[in-house]
Amino acid sequence: MEGSIHVDSLGKTYQIPLREPGIAAALASLIRPTYAEVTAVRDVSFAVQSGEMVGLLGPNGSGKTTTLKMLAGLLYPTSGKVEVAGSVPQQRKPEFLRSISLVMGNKTQLTWDNTVHDSFLIHKEIYGVSQGAFRTRLGELTEMLDLAALLPKQTRNLSLGERAKCQLVLALLHNPRILFLDEPTLGLDVSMQIRFRSFLKEYNRRHGTTVILTSHYMADITSLCRRVILINKGTVFYDGDLSEMARRTAPFKLVRITNQGDLSGPEQTHLRELLERLHIVEQEQRNVTFRVERSQVVPLLGPLLNAGSMADVSIFDPPIEAVIDTLYQGVMA
């Protein structure tokens, strides 16, 4: 209950001003402004259990960030019901706000002119964290993210990655039961992204914090979330296991072979005949990548190895980016 989320037929419609180009239209809009209604979230329903890590995915403008903001109590829903940690988010009761954290990759809650440690102390006071609990949590988080050297620095003097780390620690100092992460690794380099992910995984394991994550980096999703909710045009079109989604959307494996000789040579006739019957994805010199139905991979291996003089064979799942792209293209078509 304390870390669970229930969303039922959630909807959010914005009214935005419209105007034709030019000075005449600008003057006319003063007298008679025109508005258009934009539905950002149409009908979203899902439930998240305490301790789950769920990825909220969707193309740009799909409604995922709007959904996240409604879950965090920043936006009033136009329709539907939301319950987060037993509270209605938009009522913004102090006990609700103490039980959540929202980390936005493009906004910081650290105070620009203050030191990181001062920002943490202010957070402690605002959330009413006891001195003992603060010391314990700060110690744990500082150690996990190797933060000690950053504490006496002013926020303005931190690099993007350092600021992101401090921002995450700040968000966790009051021990929220639910953590909303909106593009938390935005702009971070690859090694910082990896550290972030391993930290979040470990933190979730230790504390059982519910995590809802949006990210355009698929590596964030694949390494952290077993379950994904895909949103497009404000509605959920997939909610379930990430690997199952990949299997359903792309029910094939990719096989990449590297032949010892040139594929155009006369001794490669058998291999060429075999490849002609397959769905080739990519071909360059001695390397060929093709897709094969999952059930056909093993039966194909024998004839394949006999057909040519193989230097290497790799079998792998299609990249998750390609799976998601296939899904997006499918639903947007």
Binding site: P94, W112, D113, D118, S119, L121, I122, E125, I126, Y127
Partner: peptide, 21 residues
């Protein structure tokens, strides 16, 4: 009333302003 938080906010802003006195 969250006095503790309010006082902390005053302190935060004060630190910030004194750096640009």
């Amino acid at each position: 009333m969250n006095w503790r938080g309010g006082i902390a906010l005053v302190g935060k802003t004060l630190f910030s302003y004194t750096s640009s006195i």
